[in-house]
Every structure is written in C-alpha cells, then in structure tokens.
C-alpha cells in the first residue's frame, strides 16, 4: 500500500494486529474532550474560541479515527491535531483573546463550593498570566509537559519538533515559570494579606 510509510508503521506493526478493538468517536470524545479543552485554554485561546477550535479538531478526529490503528498514542495524536488546527488558524481562534478577564460564570463542577471555585478561578487567572509571558513555543511545551503531563517524546511528536528542543524549551519554561510565580505571588501577598491568613 503506497501510503503507509514502512518506517513509521513498523513501530506500530506489532500492536496493529491486536488493535482490532477500535475506539468509537464517543469514547474518544468523552475521554479526551476535557484534556483538549484545557490544553487549548492553557495555550491561550479565549473561552469563546475554544469551542470553535475544538469543533474543528473533533471534526478532523471524527474523520480520521478510522485511520487510527492503535489507541496507544491517542493523546499525542489528538494533541497533534489540536496543535495543527490551532497553528493554521491561530489568528482566528485567538482573535477575541482577553485572558485577563475571567468568565463571569464559574460553573457546575460537581461538589465544588463557591470558595473552591474562587480559588481555582484565581489559580487559573494566575497561570494564564504566567503563561502569557512565555513565547508561543515555550508555552506549548510547558503546557503539554507540565499541565497535561505528556512525556517529552510525546510533546515532541505532538508539536512536530525534536525531543532535544522540547527538553531545552521545557527547561527554560520551568525557569520562567518559577520566576513569574514568585513575582506574582509576592504581588498577591502584598495586595491581599488578609486572604493568606484565612487558611
């Protein structure tokens, strides 16, 4: 078969035989929508844009799922699609970007109290602020590795870059992250000392 490049299928060849239990779109959607959504948010796509972006992503996923021969690398595969769609349509999805604004409705996470929500909302705001200070590539690596906890080789596959590049970006991103975190925490503490004492 012409299209199947022997080099890349070789890796999967062994598993291919047993990969008959194909995944349904529903399964894939339910298992991965949260992760992809989070990822898109962490990449800096505003909430409005995330729905549009993920719709495109899942349409692609739907179409290509039959090609997926092995579910082992599905997260990487999905992330890769997300990254591609995003890269191609960057301007569109980021257009309404306004990360400094939090959504008014912080909603319906089961079992959460208003206090939890507020805290999480603050965390998410803080994180967005830190990530916004990163350049795009570093941000992507950091988000996938630290936030989504992909391994470095997975990150490399998802972003289509070299593993060494991933490691080096990740190192720098971590350094920046800690710097920014310290800075922002210092600021928060000076602004709201009362809140710190509460716990």
């Amino acid at each position: 078969m012409l299209l199947a490049p022997t080099a890349s299928t070789a890796d999967f060849g062994a598993r291919q035989a047993s990969a008959a239990g194909e995944l349904s779109f529903d399964e894939v959607y339910e298992a991965h929508v949260d992760g992809l959504w989070r990822c898109a948010r962490a990449f800096g796509v505003p909430e409005q844009g995330v729905a549009d972006l993920l719709q495109d992503v899942f349409v692609v996923v739907h179409r290509r799922l039959p090609e997926l021969e092995c579910s082992v690398g599905i997260r990487t595969w999905l992330t890769r699609i997300l990254w591609r769609v995003l890269s191609q349509q960057r301007r569109t999805f980021y257009r309404k970007a306004n990360h400094s604004e939090l959504p008014d409705e912080i909603v319906d996470h089961a079992g959460s109290t208003p206090f939890d929500s507020t805290e999480r909302a603050q965390a998410s705001k803080l994180l967005s602020e830190i990530l916004d200070s990163f350049d795009e590539d570093r941000r992507a690596v950091f988000v996938l590795a630290e936030f989504e906890q992909l391994t470095a080789p997975e990150v490399a596959e998802a972003l289509g870059v070299n593993v060494n590049t991933v490691y080096s970006r990740l190192r720098l991103a971590r350094r920046d992250y800690m710097k920014q975190l310290a800075r922002l925490q210092a600021r928060e503490n000076s602004l709201a000392p009362a809140q710190q004492r509460r716990t």
Partner: peptide, 11 residues
Amino acid sequence: LLNQARSEMSP
C-alpha cells in the same frame, strides 16, 4: 498552581 488551575480550565 497548575493543579488548581487544571479543573478550572476544563469545560
């Protein structure tokens, strides 16, 4: 912070 933000950033 990452862990806290994670659930907030989910749909």
